[in-house]
Structure formats: C-alpha cells, structure tokens
Design a protein around this nucleic acid. Structure first.
Length: 702
RNA sequence: GGUCCCGUAGCUCAGCUGGAUAGAGCAACAGAUUUCUAAUCUGUCGGUCAUUGGUUCGAAUCCAAUCGGGAUCACCA
C-alpha cells in the first residue's frame, strides 16, 4: 500500500515533459487567459543553456505581445511555482528552461524505482507479425536478413508496447520453384543428401535450383535464336504467335532509331573522359550493349543525352525480348517437365510427394540452423502447401455481399478504381486460386487461429500494391482486424555494383555473411588484445555477439522503406554509429558494476542523497535515459526499429561522454561516486533493454 | 504511359506531425591515456537539403511542377 503510493508520486514527477506541459498550460491561463493553447516543447540546442525549450511563436498573434515579454512572464511563473524549473532564458521566440537539480534527481529516482521502465502498460490486443516467409528452393540471403531482423525487432517492440505478439512465418514450400530443384535433383541421378555431401540442406537444394536454371538457359538459347533471328514460330499456338509477332515487330521497329542514334556517336566524343570510362565506352560501342550502365558514368551534356537515348531504346528492346522469352521458355522440355511435376504434386502422386517431402525437410533443417544462429524463432509456422487452397469461400462470400463481381468467363473480381487502384481478379475463371485468393484465406486463418486484432506483414516493397489491394478487400468485407492490417514494407539491399541477382551469382548468402562477420569480429578483438584470458568457448560466443550485433544494427538503423547499400568491404562497421560501440559501453558498465561490488560501494538512493552538483554530462545522460518510454512508443506507433537503433546509439554516446568527463571511483566525494555507479547501472539497464528490442545481445566484457 | 517510393557533406545515413546556426558515423587532419575498458573522448575540415515555384511570421520538412533513381501495373507468386 505504502509502496504503491510512493511509486505514484514518482510516476507523476517522472514524466518531466508532462509536468512541464501542465505547468505551462496553467501559466498561459493564469497570465493571459489562454485556454487550450498548443504547447510545443522540444529539447534545447547544444549552444543554449537549458534542456527543454518552449516555442512561443503560436502565442504571438493571439496575445499581440512580443516573444520576450511572453517568455519572461512564463519563465518567471515557472520558476516561482513549479520547483521543477530553476532558471530560464529567452532567445527570440524560444523559451529555454533549465531544470533544478532536484527535478533531475527526482526523475532519475523514479526511473530507478520502476523495474519495468520502458515497457508500456499492457493492452488487451493481439498482433501477429509475419516475417521471413522464405521460398524453399534456395538458402537465405542478405535481403532475407533485413526482413527477419525487422520482423523480430518489431515483434519485441510491440511486446514492449503492451501487445501480445505472435511471431509467424509463412513458408512458401510449394510451387514451380521447388519443382525445379526437385527435377534437377532427379536428373542428376545420384542420391546426394546433406549427410552424404556435407552440404547444409538449404544450400544443397539451392545448388540444384541453380543447376536447373543453368540447364534451362542452355536449352533456351538456341530456341530464342530461332525466334529472334529466323522468326520460326511453328511450335507455338496461334495466340502465342500473334503475341510473338507483335513483340518481334516492336523489336524490328526499335532497330532503326537505335541504329540512327548509334551512328551519331563517335569515339572522339569520349576522349576527354577518364580512362576507365573510356574503356567501358569502347566495349559498349563494340557490343552495342550496356548503355544504361554507361550513361550512369557520364556527366550531364550532349553525349550523356545521346547515350541515355540509346539506353532507353536498349531497355525497350530488352523488355520485348523478355516478353518473348517468357513464352519461349514455357516451351522448353525442362519447363514442361517442371510443370508436369507440379501437376503431379497437386494430384498427390506418391513419388513426387515423397521427394518433395524429403527435399523440403532438408531445407527446413537448414533454415532452422540459420534461424538458431541468428537468434530467431517463431510462435507459429504456416506452410503454403496447407494454405494455398484457402480463400475460395471468401470469393463466394464477396459475391454474395455484392463486393465482388463476375467476369464473363466466370472469374471473380473486385473493382477498386474508386480508391485509385485497379480492377483485380480474386479467383480465376476456372475456379482456381490466384495469389491474392490464398492471402485472403490466410488472413482469415490467422484470425481464426489466434483472434488477432492486428496483422503485420513484413514484406518487400515490390509488393506494396498487392497489400494495398488485400487490405482494401479485407476492410470491405468487414473483417474486425481489417483496420489493424499493416504492411511493413522495406526496400532492397543493393550491392555496390547494383542489385543482388541469384542468377548472376551476386547474392550475399546469409550463412556466409554471418561467418565472415564473426571472422572480422575475431580479428578485431585479437588486435585489441584485451580478451586473451577468456576461455575459447566464451570467446567464440563473444565473436558471435559482436558479429550479429554489428550486422543487425547495420540493417536496422536505416528507415525500412529506403533502399540501402551494402558494401561488403566497409559497410558493417565496428566503430562509431554501430552495435559494437553500444555493446562496448554496456560491457564497460558491467566492469564498473563488478568493481563497485568488489569495493563494496553502495549506490542506493540514500548513498547519494547529499549529492548536489551534477555535471552537465550527467544531467544530459539522465535526460536521454528518461526518453526511453517515449522512444518505445514512437517505434511501436511507426513500426520503426530504426527509432530504437538510433536511440541506442544516443544512449551509448551519452554514456561515453559521461565516462570521459566524470571519474567514477576517483570522484571527489563518496556521494558522487555512488551516484555515478547508480547512473551507470541505469544506463546498463537501458542499453540492455533497447538492444534486446533490436535482437542484439549484450556481452559482459569485450 | 498510370500509380507508389526515394533524392540531405566525398561515402553511408539521421532530421521530414513546419521552428534557432541542417546533424551523426566513416574517410582526412590536429589533440587527449601515471586514471574505472582508447572498440573511447575533444576539436578542425566538409552542405545551392536534386531544381523551380507556391503556402507561412518561419520550409530540408507541407503543396505543385520539373529533373534524376527504383518499384509496380497478370485469371504469375
């Protein structure tokens, strides 16, 4: 009872912003009779004295007074009344407030007393976060890692925000992609297994996927030549012929403007350029390919314009060739065999199912190892082989409700043009599912399974449109969770030379990357030579903690929707704005706490009750620590782990500065020493808290 | 072509519910350790916030147009 009342007092003082806001409201009303004025508080810029700044601009007009006048009046009121504000200064339209030492101590104490500081009150809502959702034909790569880390971190953040969170993974274990791997495996004719080959299951299956692709290319090349050069179309249906002829005509039509534009270019024009660009240009001119890449290297000007024009013509031609390829590819023996296998799978043909189960089993085992390694697990795993037929009843339901309509051939569709979207088919004319059919069904399944209020999808931004449509449909159908659907859309991770392309072997494999990061972590640790006394087992754990931390932080600190660049040579830093720096500060704090224990330094409130002269970096650090709940809330509301990542760096930097400015065990007074240990402990709590939200571990020493 | 996203320092990124002199890290340069972890701290250098116009007391931030980059526009997934 007593304890509870005690806590309430603290909680009231704790939120300085709320307290200040309330006092300022009172001031405005008492002094000027202003009701319900908007109050904008922001943190004070470095160069000015104070910690909180009130913007006075909004009051200038209604009060018809100068900002200095208003600022002084409010400032005087606050200093007189509140006991929170010690002094103030007014600069132009800004009222800078300095808090009293008592206010800092009181808020610090409140924070310390709250063992779950940073967690928001529980709310009776369930949210499912679906992430990872891999295909089972190849191993995880860097792009998947961005997805997985985002999903995991968001789950932790939402839990801290008080939601009950279900982490779900929807594995795409069926379809043409896995049939390709299966077919290649079958054809290879030797009974290779992960055990026999020593290759991790997902990598082994990926190997056969690549093999299929290679064989397909070989088969396709002469066929494409037949079509493109000899225009022989006898193997195609009439409808296909028409499409192909159209495409061929377009390509033909593009040739003349291309040749014309090409003729206008002379090598002389390139001669002023850097030698490496000249080299590139020569090659491009010779092969008449790669104009797009070349145009990126050029400065603005006449020449760049010409090259750009060529690049655009080249792209159009390539697009047409792509269209042709799609049709021709379907005629290859390999693709037809793969399609046949898919049909057999759907028909439940025993030997196909058996092989499918075996190979998927290998992949799942491989994925499990990867997930374990990066510290990720799921509460629920869905398999698309179980869900891909779902959603047909919803198509029916939509028809009955008049939300969907029928096409002449029986396809079910929805017209979303009123919302700026298009018409979308949700079920084929033959009654079978399309992609969105199963997503509708799965959305309902998730609700049936867990009674969720919100549903988050961590999926790449190439599916932005798809989710707009899906969410719109589920809302129209009146689903209770419809308003709570959110697409956490993230951008691609690009490499210095451009996109990752599995076919060109420029994919950064997730397992390889983690291993490489651990190697670097080991190298850096050894360079520093501080950890030589640690047993090998603990060292290995430390390397893993640092390596994964660096990688996760690197991928999480950037706003999700932005395309980001990954440069293997230099991207994942261990210094500055990076996880190892944050972890390092945590480790330092643990070292301090160990020493405090050893020296039997008390650091309860009583031990520093008489400490009065706080250093500026101590107050700054408290101010940073106090914003934890606000940061958690912001990150949750915006679905933005980047907010937490940036905050973790802010905390670490604040501590690092404090550490440099204030000696702890050699402090002038015992009070100062105790307080600084307490401040370190609270910082340690905060660092651990936020790093956990990012899925990053904290080392006890490093 | 329609729609959506992005464009901030040499590089990678913050800031974008409008507020002071646009911030960090990396890189470069100059300092700091008889001291609790230097994977650190302090400082210097570095910017027409893509461009133009508009709204406003005030715009990197909101609106419009333009230019660049990307994505997407299937009865594919």
């Amino acid at each position: 009872m007593h304890k509870k009342a005690h806590l309430c007092v603290y909680l009231r003082i704790m939120n300085i912003e709320d307290t200040l806001t309330q006092h300022i409201k009172n001031a405005l009303q008492t002094l000027f009779g202003l009701q319900d004025a908007t109050i904008t508080l922001q943190s004070t810029l470095k160069d000015f004295e104070g910690s909180h700044t009130l913007l006075l601009f909004p009051y200038l007009k209604p009060l018809q007074k100068k900002p200095e006048e208003i600022g002084q009046a409010i400032g005087d009121y606050l200093v007189g009344k509140a006991g929170v504000v010690g002094k103030y200064n007014v600069v132009k339209g800004f009222l800078n407030l300095s808090l009293t030492q008592e206010a800092w101590f009181a808020s610090f104490e409140a924070m310390r007393q709250n063992p779950t500081f940073g967690n928001l009150p529980a709310r009776p809502q369930k949210v499912m976060v679906e992430f990872s959702s891999p295909n089972t034909n190849k191993p995880l790569h860097l792009g998947h890692l961005r997805n997985i880390f985002l999903g995991w971190s968001l789950s932790q953040i939402l839990e801290a925000c008080g939601y009950e969170v279900i982490k779900a993974n929807l594995i795409n274990d069926r379809g043409i992609h896995i049939c390709k791997s299966m077919l290649a495996y079958q054809k290879a004719g030797k009974p290779e297994t992960p055990a026999s080959s020593g290759i991790k299951g997902d990598h082994l299956v990926g190997k056969y996927y690549v093999a299929f692709d290679k064989a397909l290319k070989q088969e396709l090349a002469p066929m494409m030549r037949e079509v493109l050069e000899n225009q022989r179309l006898d193997i195609f249906t009439e409808a296909e012929k028409i499409t192909l002829q159209n495409a061929l005509k377009k390509i033909e039509d593009l040739k003349k403007p291309f040749a014309q534009a090409f003729a206008e270019i002379t090598l002389v024009e390139f001669e002023n350029l850097a030698p490496e660009i000249l080299e590139k240009a020569k090659e491009t001119l010779q092969t008449q390919k790669g104009f797009k890449a070349l145009s990126k290297d050029l400065e603005k000007g006449e020449l760049a314009k010409k090259i750009k024009n060529l690049a655009s013509l080249e792209a159009k031609t390539e697009e047409e060739i792509g269209n042709i390829k799609e049709i021709v590819q379907a005629k290859t023996v390999l693709m037809q065999e793969a399609q046949k296998m898919l049909q057999d799978w759907e028909a439940g043909k025993a030997e196909v199912i058996e092989l499918w189960k075996e190979m998927n089993g290998w992949v799942f085992e491989g994925f499990k190892q990867s997930y374990d390694k990066i510290g990720v697990r799921f509460d629920k795993i869905y398999y698309e082989s179980n869900t891909y037929q779902l959603g047909k009843d919803i198509a029916q339901e939509g028809l009955e409700k008049g939300i969907f309509g029928k096409e002449p051939n029986g396809a079910v569709s929805i017209d979303l043009t009123a919302e700026g979207l298009d018409k979308k088919v949700v079920q084929r004319g033959d009654g079978t599912s399309v992609y969105i059919t199963q997503d509708m069904g799965t959305a309902d399944l998730k609700f049936q399974d867990f009674g969720i209020d919100k549903s988050v999808y961590v999926v790449g931004n190439e599916q932005d449109y798809h989710f707009k449509v899906l969410f719109s449909i589920m809302k129209k159908l009146g689903r209770s969770y419809g308003e709570g659907m959110y697409h956490l859309s993230y951008g691609m991770v690009e490499l210095p030379h451009g996109k990752m392309k599995s076919r060109e072997g420029t994919v950064v494999d997730a397992d390889d990357l983690v291993t490489e990061m651990e190697r670097i972590a080991e190298e850096k640790t050894k360079e520093l030579g501080k950890m030589e006394n640690l047993p090998a087992e603990e060292l290995a754990k430390l390397y893993e903690t640092i390596a994964l931390g660096a990688l996760k932080y690197f991928l999480l600190k950037v706003e999700p929707k932005k395309t980001m660049l990954f440069n293997p040579e230099e991207s994942v830093n261990f210094h500055g704005d990076a996880a190892p720096f944050v972890q390092y500060n945590y480790a330092r704090i643990q070292s301090i706490l160990r020493k405090a224990e050893q020296d039997q330094v008390q650091y309860g409130q009583a031990s520093y009750a008489n400490y009065k002269t706080m250093h500026a970096s101590e107050a700054d650090l408290i101010a940073i620590l106090l914003t934890l709940p606000a940061k958690v809330q912001e990150a949750g509301e915006q679905y933005a782990p980047s907010v937490i990542a940036q905050y973790s760096y802010e905390v670490a930097k604040g501590y690092s500065r404090f550490f440099a400015d204030c000696s702890i065990f050699k402090a002038d007074t015992a009070e100062a020493r105790s307080f600084r240990v307490a401040l370190s402990a609270q910082t340690g709590y905060t660092l651990k808290f936020v790093l956990r939200l990012l899925g990053i571990k904290t080392p006890e020493r490093m």
